[in-house]
Each structure stands twice: as structure tokens, then as C-alpha cells.
């Protein structure tokens, strides 16, 4: 198990450990044609403690990216509450929110699309420093900005000359380093990373996973790490939340969720990961496909694919409940060891 690194910025916070972010019963509903609604996030609650890495996993359409965007108010939630640093940010107006932006940042999957191709890296990275004032309320002068840019290049292991170049001059891995540097410019406390390594080559992926881990330790950062690759999530996360069709079905410490899973979906998901080992046991794959999020199954959403389905599961949706300290599962018949 990993120790939670001390967070320098949290030093003057109250002594009792307060969650950095608390998510309470959040919904995100999209209205489609013909009066249909798509509940991308369908009642999700959890907290993130400072210095923790929460892995958010699930298959496509489970709502993990939508939830990630809602956390930072890149999308507005339809219902529920998001509290960041003990401040309810759910309905903060854009102007007020802007003052909080330096403390919460995002890294996206597509490293190229998220950088303006017509601007030099130095220019891209300097912009937040010019726009935002220091915590003391003063503007940064060019010397301060130049100093910070040098610092950032060192943090993400890029040469100083990178500042003079354009995004297309870099490889995918280098561009993702630039994206990470940009997220770090204003020294945030929380970073939401949405599939940050899934577009990278295998041999480069490990470098970026290591970089995320190093920065987290050195800067005392808190991550929400969204990914579909369970092995990557296992490597970096302290806790894992598994999502299926808009809800969290299991939440707990990484080792608990991935090795002592109680939800049949989590078990199937971990077993489906192809392992680079010849002759590994290969349990029968889960049948069927993920139902449409527009037309979700009644009762437990997983009952159409669950190998251990019971009559009750078809009518009654299980709530997320604690089955052991820090281990929550939404299943009527959790698998207990």
C-alpha cells in the first residue's frame, strides 16, 4: 500500500482531514430527440481525499468521461452537488468559478487536439500565467513567467528548447508531457486526467504513467484518473471506482476492488483483461453487450449480463452500500470471500 504524501498547500487547512472534493448524488441528463433522455451519470456519490488517486474505470458509455467533466464544471450537472475545498461549486457563476480554475485542471486523451497548433509551447504555457493573478492578487511579470516555464519543462522532462517549438514537432508522448505541464502551470491541487495514456504506444505509455506517479508524489497532487485499461489504473490508483451505465457499482481500495471484487461486473471486467502470459487461465467471457444508456435495463442495470442473476435483480435496483470498511458495492448478492 502507498502512503499518502503530505500536501504542502493543505498545511493551513483545518486539522481534521477534509475531502478535497465531495460528490453528492450527481446526475447528468441529456435530452435527445423524441423526448428521450440519456442519463449519462445517474446518481453518483463519492469523496476524494487530498493526495489520493481515484481511478475511474468502466467500458464505453458508462459515464466516466461525463462525470470527469462534471467534476470540474466543464459540464453542468443536472442535479446533485459538487463540493471542492469545502465550497459548493455546483452552481457557481462562471466568473467566480474562474478564480477556482487554477486549483483544478484537466488532461485529455487526444494530446494533439488539446493543443493549439498555431501557438508555440512557451506561449501556450504562459497564457494561464498572464490571465490569472497570483494567489496574492498581483500580476506576474515576464521574468516570473519565464522562470515558471523553465521549472515546468524540468518537471515533465522536456528540453528547454521545446518552449520555442510547435505542437506538431513533438511525438505523442512528448505532447502528452506538454499537456501535463499545462495542467500544472498554476499549481493545481486536483487534476482530472481522462484516458491520458490510452492513445500512446505501449513503450511510451509506461513513461507517462511513471511521470504521473512522480508528479503526484513530488507535488502532493490529487488525481481522478479515468481509464479503461485496468492494469494502468491498478498501477497508479490508491482507490478505484467501477462504473456501469451511469452508476458506480463498486468502490474501494485498489487491491480490494481488483483482487477481492464483490460485484460480478468487476470480477468479469478484471478477468477479461488480456494478460501477457501464455497459458493463463481464461474464464468464459461475459455474454452480451453493454445495453444502450438511453434504454437501460430495469432493476440492477447489470442483470441482463450477470452470470449470477436472481429474480430480485430484475425489479429492484441495488444501492451502493458498504460491505467492509471503505469497500462499497451496489449488488444484492455481492461475492464475498
Amino acid at each position: 500500500m502507498r502512503s499518502v504524501p503530505p500536501n504542502e498547500q493543505a498545511a493551513n487547512a483545518p486539522t481534521a482531514p477534509q475531502p478535497l472534493m465531495a460528490v453528492r448524488d450527481v446526475y447528468k441528463t441529456y435530452t435527445l430527440k423524441k423526448g428521450q433522455t440519456l442519463k449519462a451519470v445517474d446518481g453518483v456519490s463519492f469523496t476524494i481525499m487530498p493526495g489520493e488517486v481515484l481511478g475511474l474505470v468502466g467500458e464505453s458509455g458508462c459515464g466516466k468521461s461525463t462525470l470527469g467533466r462534471c467534476l470540474l464544471r466543464l459540464s453542468d450537472v443536472s442535479a446533485g452537488q459538487i463540493v471542492f475545498e469545502e465550497q459548493n461549486i455546483t452552481h457557481l457563476p462562471e466568473r467566480t468559478l474562474r478564480a477556482l480554475r487554477p486549483r483544478m485542471q484537466m488532461v485529455f486523451q487526444d494530446s494533439y487536439a488539446s493543443l493549439n497548433p498555431r501557438r508555440r509551447i512557451g506561449d501556450l504555457l504562459a497564457e494561464p500565467l498572464r490571465v490569472h493573478r497570483t494567489p496574492e492578487g498581483t500580476r506576474r511579470n515576464s521574468a516570473t513567467i519565464a522562470h515558471r516555464l523553465t521549472e515546468l519543462m524540468e518537471l515533465v522532462s522536456l528540453p528547454h528548447t521545446a518552449l520555442e517549438r510547435y505542437p506538431h514537432e513533438f511525438s505523442g508522448g512528448q505532447r502528452q508531457r506538454i499537456n501535463i505541464a499545462r495542467a500544472l502551470v498554476l499549481a493545481p491541487r486536483l487534476i482530472v486526467a481522462d484516458e491520458p495514456v490510452s492513445a500512446l504506444d505501449v513503450s511510451v505509455q509506461a513513461q507517462i504513467v511513471n511521470l504521473f506517479a512522480d508528479l503526484q508524489k513530488h507535488l502532493g497532487l490529487t488525481y481522478v484518473f479515468i481509464a479503461h485499461d485496468l492494469a494502468v489504473v491498478r498501477q497508479i490508483s490508491t482507490r478505484v471506482a467501477v462504473m456501469y451505465l451511469g452508476v458506480i457499482v463498486e468502490l474501494g481500495e485498489t487491491d480490494t476492488v481488483l483482487h477481492n471484487a464483490a460485484h460480478p461486473y468487476t470480477i468479469a471486467l478484471t478477468q477479461a483483461v488480456p494478460r501477457p502470459v501464455v497459458g493463463a487461465a481464461r474464464p468464459a467471457p461475459l455474454r452480451g453487450e453493454i445495453p444502450s444508456p438511453v434504454n437501460k435495463p430495469s432493476g440492477c442495470r447489470f442483470h441482463t449480463r450477470c452470470p449470477a442473476v436472481q429474480p430480485r435483480c430484475q425489479n429492484e435496483a441495488p444501492a451502493l452500500r458498504q460491505i467492509a470498511p471503505g469497500h462499497e458495492v451496489a449488488c444484492h448478492y455481492p461475492v464475498l470471500k
Binding site: D201, S203, Q205, A206, Q207, N210, P276
Partner: peptide
């Protein structure tokens, strides 16, 4: 060998850092 080593393991102890291959192709 390096490619196989750089894949995060799904079981066993988690390494502190992954043995990454430096640079790119």
C-alpha cells in the same frame, strides 16, 4: 523483453515505477 516488462502487471506487487523504455521509435 523491455516491452513485456513495461506493461503494468495485473497481479502481484505493484512496482514503484514501471520499467519504461526511454525515448520513442
Amino acid at each position: 523483453a523491455a516491452l513485456l516488462a513495461s506493461i503494468p502487471p495485473m497481479s502481484g506487487p505493484r512496482p514503484d515505477r514501471l520499467p519504461a523504455i526511454p525515448g520513442g521509435p
